[in-house]
């Protein structure tokens, strides 16, 4: 469904990604793990068009994304839940969902889509007139995910949805991700909670200083000695 071939990217003269290649098949859940500053968010930004790649190729469903601006990539069917959620704090929950459905094809199905999101996150229905900035961290993450789902994406990119949340809420967020998977979405998720993310994905990539260090099935990575030593404290 999505494939990256030797993609490089950076900020100004600083290079954050080096020749990254990656495959996501329809229906899969894929994890991207790695330490702080590895380039995980940069990778997500390149896929969603927030950042232009400097070389390499991105193909989604047989179509090149390499030169497309971000709003065209959403149109193609990729939604990005950005790092730190990035809600419109001074807009209500409902207005945040409306923005998520800005594209003409999503507008037409707004009523049905929002009903579906509210069914997925009943908490949001109670709070839909509340300003997004006044919600709890877990609720805000629900809005961020719901907002991305409003465009009815085929592929959902999630950048550390559990960051900054209390352990109990982290548990809830992983349950949400599992729920979204079951709804048939293809998911590419960045996470630092290695144990938990490996429990919900099919395969994962380990990114270190801008390069793919390792990749394999979730089970393989869980048993990998290097990963156990460096990231799981075993």
């Amino acid at each position: 469904m999505l494939s990256l071939r030797r993609v490089s990217a950076g900020y100004g003269s600083f290079r954050a990604l080096f020749d990254v290649s990656l495959e996501v098949a329809a229906g899969e859940a894929i994890g991207v793990v790695g330490p702080n500053g590895a380039g995980k968010s940069t990778l997500m930004r390149v896929i969603s068009g927030m950042l232009r790649s400097s070389s390499g190729e991105l193909v989604f469903e047989g179509r090149s994304l390499t030169r497309l601006p971000a709003h065209r990539i959403v149109e193609a069917g990729i939604a990005h839940v950005p790092e730190h959620r990035r809600l419109f704090a001074k807009l209500s929950v409902e207005e945040n969902l409306r923005i998520g459905a800005f594209l003409p094809q999503a507008r037409r199905h707004y009523a049905e889509r929002s009903e579906w999101v509210y069914a997925l996150f009943p908490r949001l229905l109670e709070r839909r007139r509340q300003l997004a900035g006044t919600l709890s961290g877990g609720e805000q993450q629900m809005v961020a995910i719901g907002r991305a789902l409003m465009s009815k994406p085929k592929l959902l990119l999630m950048d550390e949805p559990s960051a900054g949340l209390a352990p109990l809420v982290v548990e809830q967020v992983f349950n949400l991700v599992r729920l979204i998977r079951e709804q048939g979405f293809t998911v590419l998720i960045v996470e630092q909670n290695l144990q938990q993310v490996l429990a919900i994905v099919d395969r994962a990539y380990l990114l270190e200083v801008g390069r793919i260090r390792l990749s394999g099935s979730a089970a393989e990575l869980k048993d990998n000695a290097m990963i156990q030593q460096a990231y799981m404290g075993l």
Binding site: S48, G49, M50, P69, A70, H71, V74, E75, A79, H80, P82, R86, F88, A89, K90, L91, E95, R98, I99, G100, F102, L103, A106, R147, A148, S151
Partner: peptide
């Protein structure tokens, strides 16, 4: 609504399809 949103966070408007 997009006009009000854009004043709060320009960078991610593209992700909303705007």
């Amino acid at each position: 609504i997009a006009m009000r949103a854009i004043a709060q966070d320009r960078e991610i408007m593209g992700l909303m399809g705007v």
